[in-house]
């Protein structure tokens, strides 16, 4: 069976010489809640940008739902939803208009678009904000709207690139409730990058750890914790810190 996201030997070098990805290979099965972890500048966002066809790879191959995204860009966009680090919203438009327009871009009819916009404003608790301009929303509500826009077309794969940055604890809890529901009920495959390891630990089951463009671990989160500390129970946060320290500076960590 072909994995939902299949990545083989992906390389990416930026014009200034930074090697962002050095032969990344991964397999993410349908319906998995997967998280890609790694320090800042490790290559996480680059990988997400390549998988979502925002930038081109140098070499290697990848497929989304069995399709080559570079040759099926339009079909792929209908399958994936992307919520990245920055709020991609038009600040001059009203919340409801933005949602309806986004739905229409994905091929929904006017009545379908209005219905879906209603669902999403309720789901993300934006009911009271629907006639406000997006630019007038609070930081947390802008994030909610940004995430709602990624879901208008009921994607089968969700790419969440540090999605909860800037959300207050209540908004975060609400956001994860929506995402886990989608993951368990639909089931939507989730590809998450985050620096909040407690969130990854709580919601994801599979993970990969990328450091300086190379995958250092790929498997289950439970497996990762056992690998780092076979005898005891450690949180993902502690396991991650210990592992990164070991990989970054093997001599020091031995002492």
């Amino acid at each position: 069976m072909i994995a939902e996201i299949q990545i083989q030997e992906l390389f990416k070098k930026y014009p200034k010489g930074t090697e962002a990805l050095k032969g990344v290979s991964l397999e993410i099965q349908k319906g998995q809640f997967f998280t890609l972890l790694g320090p800042n500048g490790a290559g996480k966002s680059t990988l997400v940008q390549i998988l979502t066809t925002l930038i081109n790879k140098d070499s290697g191959s990848f497929s989304i739902a069995g399709l080559n995204p570079e040759a099926n860009q339009s079909r792929i966009q209908k399958m994936i939803g992307v919520a990245s680090q920055d709020n991609e919203i038009d600040p001059t438009e009203k919340v409801e208009n933005l949602l309806v327009f986004q739905c229409r871009l994905f091929g929904l009819t006017k009545p379908e678009a209005s219905k879906r916009a209603n669902e999403l404003t309720q789901l993300f608790e934006l009911d009271k904000e629907r006639s406000k301009k997006a630019g007038a929303l609070s930081g947390g509500n802008k994030r909610r709207l940004h995430c709602a826009l990624a879901l208008v077309h009921r994607p089968r794969i969700l790419f969440l690139d540090e999605p909860t940055v800037g959300m207050d604890p209540v908004a975060r809890a609400n956001f994860w409730e929506v995402i886990t529901q989608l993951n368990t009920q639909e089931p939507v495959t989730v590809f998450l990058t985050t620096q909040y390891l407690d969130e990854a630990d709580k919601h994801a089951t599979e993970m990969a750890l990328i450091i300086a463009g190379e995958i250092k671990y790929s498997g289950t989160i439970i497996g990762f914790k056992k690998m780092v500390n076979p005898n005891g129970v450690m949180s993902l946060d502690d396991s991650y810190l210990q592992f990164v320290k070991t990989v970054s500076n093997p001599e020091t960590s031995k002492n």
Partner: peptide
């Protein structure tokens, strides 16, 4: 230009509309 400044261009870029 306004779409590029606000980041909304990226949202449109990720839609199925031809680029």
């Amino acid at each position: 230009n306004a779409d590029m400044q606000s980041g909304y261009f990226k949202r449109l870029y990720l839609s199925p509309a031809p680029r």
